[in-house]
Amino acid sequence: MQNTTEKESNYNNLDKMSVAEILKDINYEDKTVAISVSKALPQIEKLAIAITERMKAGGRLFYIGAGTSGRLGVVDASECPPTFGVPFDMVVGIIAGGDGAIRKAVEFAEDDTEQAWKDLSAYNITDKDVVVGIAASGTTPYVIGGLKAANQNKITTGCVVCNSGSPVAAEANYPVELVTGPEFLTGSTRMKAGTGQKLVLNMLTTTVMIQLGKVKGNKMVDMQLSNYKLVDRATKMVMAEIGVDEATAAELLKKNDSVRKAVDYYNQNK
Rank of each mutant, 00 (worst) to 15 (best):
L212Y: 10
G59M: 00
N3Q: 15
A234T: 00
L204M: 01
T248E: 14
M1E: 11
G93I: 01
M239V: 03
V263I: 13
A135I: 01
M191Y: 04
I35W: 11
Y174E: 08
D222F: 13
K219T: 14
V91R: 07
G70Y: 04
E29V: 15
L61H: 11
L41F: 15
A135T: 00
Q115S: 13
V131N: 02
N27M: 10
R54C: 04
E171S: 02
K229R: 08
D257N: 15
T206Q: 02
M209T: 08
V238G: 10
K192A: 10
G85S: 13
D245T: 15
L47I: 02
T139A: 07
T205R: 10
G243W: 05
L230N: 09
G158P: 05
L185F: 05
D76N: 09
P175A: 06
A77I: 03
T113E: 12
A150C: 03
L23V: 15
G196I: 01
N227C: 05
V143P: 05
K255D: 11
Y28A: 13
N267Q: 15
S188Q: 11
G217Y: 10
K56E: 15
C159G: 09
G194T: 04
D232N: 13
A105Q: 04
S18C: 07
Y174A: 08
A250Q: 14
S188P: 01
Q115P: 02
D245R: 14
I134W: 04
I35N: 13
A193G: 08
A77N: 07
R71C: 11
P82A: 07
T4E: 14
D222M: 14
E8W: 03
I144S: 00
A40C: 06
A247C: 10
S166R: 05
S36D: 08
L185S: 02
A34S: 09
E251H: 09
E53M: 11
Y228I: 13
D30F: 12
T140E: 06
L147I: 00
T189L: 02
D257R: 09
I64L: 10
V86K: 00
I144T: 02
V19I: 09
R103I: 02
L201W: 00
D119K: 10
G158V: 07
A234F: 01
N267Y: 11
M237S: 12
I210K: 10
A66R: 07
E177G: 09
Q43C: 02
V130W: 07
D30R: 14
G187M: 06
L230C: 13
L252P: 06
I35K: 12
P182A: 12
A247D: 15
T186Y: 12
D112R: 13
I49C: 07
L212C: 05
L204K: 04
I155D: 00
A193M: 11
T83Y: 13
Y142S: 08
V131D: 06
L253V: 01
L199Y: 05
A101P: 10
G70M: 08
V160K: 02
N269A: 09
T113F: 00
T156L: 15
L14Y: 07
I125K: 02
N153E: 13
T207L: 14
D111N: 05
A40G: 02
K128I: 01
D264M: 12
N151Y: 00
E6H: 03
M239N: 05
A135P: 00
E21M: 09
E21Y: 02
G194S: 07
G145C: 06
N151C: 12
E21K: 07
K219Y: 13
V259R: 11
V37A: 13
